[in-house]
Design a binder for these strands. Structure first.
Lengths: 137, 137
DNA sequence: GACGCCGGTTACTTCAACGGAACTTCCCTC
DNA sequence: GAGGGAAGTTCCGTTGAAGTAACCGGCGTC
């Protein structure tokens, strides 16, 4: 007895022609969403910042910088960054194998907006955390 | 590199005292991670941008702007943003109920780094997507 | 007195991210 | 020929965000 023909979640087409901002941010191709969801992933920022300071790092060096990422997850992170053109992977046919990772120019250019976000974060996240605590803890 | 008694996966405490950048970005309280993982969530940017343009919106207005978010998820998103002090929720004892959402000053201040990120995204995400496509598609 | 609206809630399911542990290949050294 | 090191891969399990679908409570209207 679906009294509520409220179509619980229909809403398709109840929206007035949404302007570009709203539509944009919902699209899987929305530029902001593409990049924010990438750098919002657990280990992405770690890799980018580590490479930005070191210039070039090998797989095990990246891993040794923090003892808590498993090789599987680090590989996934690096492959994603490589696919996005943000990180370059250079493999040498040495033995033992040697693979070096570094930021591409594109990856380097991302450091600027990241810095802006970091600045805001360092200034304001204490407020955010305090507010979060007030709301139940 | 003196220490190569590096065991395969334990890695707890093999890391040399990491400097602040690396340690920081790993902490759950790392300012950057706090804010990036918040705005990286599926609907957060939508809410922030919609409120920044409209000033104030009611629950159903937010929902109507795009017909694809369920009330449950929108509620969760708004509650999280409210707990973080980024969004303000004002409920009126009217009938039918009326609830208005708007950005707090803190939430408004976040628009600036978001704009920087959006600018980068609009300039460079096409490259990212092209690169992604090259890598298998 | 059922209907509909608003702003939700509750219960269940699905999916991708993340994590743990062990195994692999190639070559080198002991 | 045992072991080691680099850079992974494979299998499996957990978790949490997101989605589906349905229900609710006050109130004003028909």
């Amino acid at each position: 007895m679906p009294q509520h023909h409220v179509t619980t979640t229909p809403a398709t087409s109840i929206a007035p022609p949404p302007d570009d901002v709203e539509r944009d941010v919902l699209s899987p191709d929305c530029p902001s969403r593409v990049i924010l969801s990438r750098i919002g992933e657990r280990w992405t920022m770690f890799v980018i910042l580590a490479l930005s300071r070191a210039g070039t790092l090998r797989f095990t060096e990246l891993r040794a910088t923090v003892g808590e990422v498993t090789p599987k997850v680090l590989t996934e992170t690096l492959r994603a960054l490589e696919a996005d053109g943000l990180v370059e992977r250079r493999a040498y046919a040495d033995s033992p194998p040697r693979v070096e990772y570094s930021l591409t120019p594109l990856g380097t250019s991302l450091l600027e907006p990241i810095a802006a976000m970091r600045e805001w974060a360092e200034q304001h996240v204490p407020e955010v955390l305090a507010s979060r605590e007030r709301a139940t803890g």
